[in-house]
């Protein structure tokens, strides 16, 4: 049975509209006009036990709203969401005990106290027996290297250290379903990598179902075989990550810094030139041929520096958005 099952889910918000300027403010103070915003609009998907699914979309696409519906914070306007067989919005104790919500931009740790105090609060809230608590904490300690962090006041921790403690606090009760909303936001690259490794390892050890949203392509490529892309509340793509990248971004981005000034014509035979700025240039090179193209380029042009990158997730997604979805 699927751990998460969403059928024709809709969530609309009523927001009041304000016209610009003081006159507009006064008008909206007296008589507010409302408009329905379709944050999630007729979305359906299922996620099996133990799956790690990446949830992608630009800001305001409806990712967070979907996660909030799944974790019971929001009532669906229409359609149905089931998690572990429960209706999340009922917020039943048995349901809440088995899930967890981590939000990269919000924290649950007590600001003025060491993280361990929050852990003890959560131990009491989830009624975790002492032995299980010690065991879980030891394991999280091993995976996240919490050691000295636990006894420091949270406000004295760096963002990365705090995020580690946030994750640990959210996992003490060994949830079966994890909702991670931009868990790596604001972290430096090393810390992002550590977080990914931890999430992957946690999934491997405990077979937990994980739904993850992120703006970072690397988070998603490192963790998820499957991605779900939404924009303006509508589902645009649901499927394998590799086919998505190959189909929609069948190229890599090659940037060069040359010793002599470059011209657009000179580069056309290597790939689709995006930008030329005297010594610098950027072009799109077909995915399968990037290494041979670069080899040729290095032979033919005196180059100081070459970088090969995956196209940014925003680009891939915006291409999907331009196409208005992916025919599967």
């Amino acid at each position: 049975m699927a751990d998460i099952d969403i059928q024709n889910l809709c969530k609309y918000y009523r927001v009041h509209q304000k016209e610009p300027g003081l006159a507009g403010s006064i008008r909206s103070f007296v008589a507010r006009r409302y408009k329905d915003v379709k944050a999630v609009d007729d979305v359906s998907f299922t996620i099996a036990r133990g799956e790690v699914v990446g949830f992608l979309g630009p800001n305001g696409a409806g990712k967070t709203t979907t996660l909030k519906v799944l974790s019971g914070l929001l009532f669906p306007t229409a359609g149905e969401a089931r998690v572990l067989g429960f209706l999340p919005h009922k917020r039943g104790t048995d349901f809440l005990r088995q899930i967890t919500l981590v939000m990269g931009q919000k924290q649950q740790l007590l600001w003025d106290l060491p993280a361990i105090e929050t852990f003890l609060v959560n131990q009491a809230i989830y009624e975790i027996p002492a032995t299980a608590y010690r065991q879980t904490l030891a394991e999280l300690n091993e995976l996240l290297d919490l050691g000295p962090l636990l006894k420091k006041q949270v406000r004295k921790l760096s963002l990365g250290e705090r995020m580690k403690c946030e994750l640990a606090a959210a996992l003490l009760h060994r949830p079966r379903v994890l909702f991670l909303d931009e868990p790596t936001i604001g972290l430096d690259v090393t810390m992002q990598t550590k977080m990914r490794q931890f999430i992957a390892e946690y999934n491997r050890r405990h077979g937990a179902t994980i739904v993850l949203t992120s703006h970072y392509m690397a988070d998603v490529t490192a963790l998820c075989k499957r991605v779900i892309i939404i924009d303006h509340g509508r589902l645009l793509y649901d499927g394998n990550l590799e086919t998505l990248a190959q189909r929609l971004a069948p190229y890599k981005i090659v940037s060069i810094v040359a010793r002599a000034p470059l011209t657009r014509d000179q580069l056309l035979r290597y790939g689709d030139v995006q930008e030329v700025d005297t010594f610098r240039a950027q072009m799109r090179v077909p995915r399968g041929h990037s290494s041979e193209v670069i080899a040729r380029l290095l032979q033919e042009i005196a180059v100081d520096d070459v970088t090969v990158e995956e196209p940014p997730i925003e680009d891939i997604i915006s291409e999907i958005f331009l196409a208005g979805g992916v025919s599967s």
């Binding site: 909030k68 974790s71 019971g72 914070l73 917020r91 104790t93 048995d94 809440l96 005990r97 899930i99 967890t100 919500l101 939000m103 919000k106 924290q107 649950q108 809230i125 989830y126």
Partner: peptide
């Protein structure tokens, strides 16, 4: 205001 009420509402208490 900050939205951290979410954490309270997802606790089984």
């Amino acid at each position: 205001r900050l939205g951290t009420m979410d954490f309270l509402l997802t606790k089984p208490v």
